[in-house]
Design a protein around this nucleic acid. Structure first.
Lengths: 233, 233, 233, 233
DNA sequence: GATGAATGAGATTTCATTCAT
DNA sequence: CATGAATGAAATCTCATTCAT
């Protein structure tokens, strides 16, 4: 899934009638904006920054966005829609709950790897949206949350288990989201390896916990690496 | 541990010579600042906001902080120092690695519960510091990270296990930090119950995984709650 | 030479690409700024003052100047370049060293009369520029200084005299600059007469000294004036 | 004449009753203030700068000065009074007008050499005083100006010459003040030699002009110096 | 005398946004 | 579509000055 495909995943009403050439340009704008927001935060990014980064006049930007917040909204709307769409497709495929969980984790992490900036802007800047915009995006997030909760509940109670998630199931889901979303704070491909491997490890922890790992320790990491995590920036 | 105790936990050089009355006032300022930063983000909090919230003149604030960033630095320095101090004390107590992990998780969550605003400002605004300030704070964070890594490694490899953490041990630690830090995004005492209970559940997941829970499901939650998570703000 | 001609004498890189209409406006801004700086000094002139004097918003000024110092730099750069250009043209004309000195003094004083504010801001605010800006302007000043030194050396040693100025020649040049630059502190056309007359007197003093005047005194000022010097502001 | 002697030269009413210890301290304050003003200008010097330079609290300064302008006034009043006093003493001594002029020039330059900062603050910051303060200082300056005018007139018209200075005599005086005051902009003892030598050269120029020097050139500077003027800062 | 704390006024600069062209 | 010019509002920070202690 390319960035362009995020762009066209779901369209905001305003742009549904835009011509393809306009859409192309809009994609470029949003991608650059995502990079800036991911880097410095939405409040700290200025429209001037964006104009300069795009080699474009300040006034020109306002042909594409009603205002700064609208820019963030469009970015989040597209990105979250694309992520949700992808994950719903994955969840629709057959398999045990454990398999589904694994596929979802990997899918999320792959999306993260491909759209780091965009997803970061979505994950950490929801609060920068106000009122109506906020609610639209939150609804998408909630759908995603409910989907994952459902899978986790099935892992615990079996595929035919009680449909209703318990309080603890929900907490567990929130723990999982924490693991997934915190990755922005530390992941570096050259240091931590491909996201698929991270996904496997995360799934392992979630399903079996550390104890399981202990029982299998020793043979686990035949060639202990000397690299280091969470260091040297 | 009260906020005042955070304040005096460790002192910045500048304030080591300040008189107690000055320190009291400084505590008040930092506490209010933490609340505002936690609410809207550091970039979006203005010195005016802070002055108004404290019923104090703008110029007056600059008696306590060299500039806005210095304010954030002082806040992070104190809070992280206090957290680290507390956790190192806890880690020094005897017990199995599993017990230690449990106590550390609970300790962290209790600190969070008591100093929500301060800790949030620390957790999400590290990047708002530049250069020298950044490095000072990062070093504290790193010490905390290493401490938790060590405990987790012992859980996996046993108390006498290899001192050297593997790459996967470090990833696991980062997953755990994700769970802990993401809590700012959802926790609400009236909805999710006391943090001690959250700590138990988190520890359970980390040690045994979901499968374990499945084996014990059924009796677990005799009275399924009707409340809902991640909703209604 | 009009103010507009100062403006276009030499262009700062930034503005070389500006359109004529922009340049016109910039001229107006700099002229007004020069008046304010001449009146109260650079440090005491505020951007607000300037905006008000131009009936223009504060923010609007920042379209033309990166910051307050840049404003001063542009002003000095243009003015000094124009003065130097004019004087180099004069110096290139044939004549005895004495004639050249006289023409240069008159040229300088005429420039002063036509661009009093601008030249004052240049003469007394060099130290208000920092680092790189300072050096650029100082180089222009130095060229002017060297030119005048050369002429004065020729007056003393003859047109074919030693090319190398002695220490005393250089001191004499500095004395001459003192006479020229101090004029800002006292000259008032209605009280002291046209600058051309001042130029003649100054040249006379420099070439022949007071003694010469003594020898010719008596007939000199047939109708002693009753006006007053250095008074009533 | 030491700085302390400037201080006690003439007293402002306010301080006439101060005790000696207070006066000592006041001297120190004014001396430091003069240095700062000479360096950055009066408007750019802040009371904080001064407090820091003196290792003294901001509020403490206000025991010695009613306000910032009063500080400048006191400084100018003392310095100018001391200079005027010294020069009047010199002028009272017998000798030809030419001798008197020479002694006055040398006296002025020596005062400059001993009290560079103080005199600079007086010479270039008169306009920073307002209303009443301005007039008091200006009166002192005027007395100095009249004294020098009188001597110069006598040089031209002889000791018994018309008491009334002509317009040109006054202009010549202003030229001389220009030479004297501009010295702040370039003089550096290590580069230009002692002020007494500068005084001789200046007097020579004023009395005889460059032509005279030409007639005597060649033998003048037996060992042409290689140093350079107005360069390399 | 001396000082820490405090402040009103104001300085420079930035920002999102608009509009005529 | 695109841009240069412009601006109101506001942000950070500074400054001279005061006052209780």
């Amino acid at each position: 899934m390319t960035v362009a495909s995020i762009a066209s995943a779901t369209l905001t009403p305003r742009e549904r009638h835009a011509r393809p050439s306009t859409r192309k340009k809009l994609d470029r704008l949003l991608m650059k904006a995502a990079a800036l927001i991911a880097d410095k935060g939405f409040a700290a990014m200025t429209m001037r920054d964006l104009g300069a980064a795009l080699d474009m006049s300040l006034a020109g930007l306002y042909h594409y966005f009603a205002n700064k917040e609208d820019l963030l909204f469009q970015l989040q709307y597209r990105t979250f829609s694309a992520l949700l769409g992808q994950q719903e497709t994955i969840a629709a495929q057959p398999g045990t709950p454990e398999e589904q969980l694994g596929r979802l984790l990997t899918g999320h992490l792959q999306f993260f790897a491909r759209h780091t900036h965009e997803l970061k802007a979505c994950t950490f800047e929801l609060e920068s949206l106000g009122g109506a915009h906020y609610r639209v995006i939150e609804e998408i997030r909630r759908r995603y949350y409910r989907m994952l909760t459902s899978v986790i509940t099935q892992v615990i109670r079996g595929p035919t288990g009680a449909a209703r998630a318990t309080r603890q199931d929900r907490h567990a889901t929130l723990f999982v989201f924490g693991m997934l979303n915190w990755i922005f704070m530390w992941y570096d491909r050259t240091r931590h390896g491909p996201v698929e491997q991270i996904g496997v490890e995360m799934c392992d922890l979630i399903l079996h916990g550390l104890e399981h790992r202990r029982r299998h320790a020793g043979g686990r990491e035949a060639h202990p690496r000397l690299d280091d995590a969470y260091q040297r920036r």
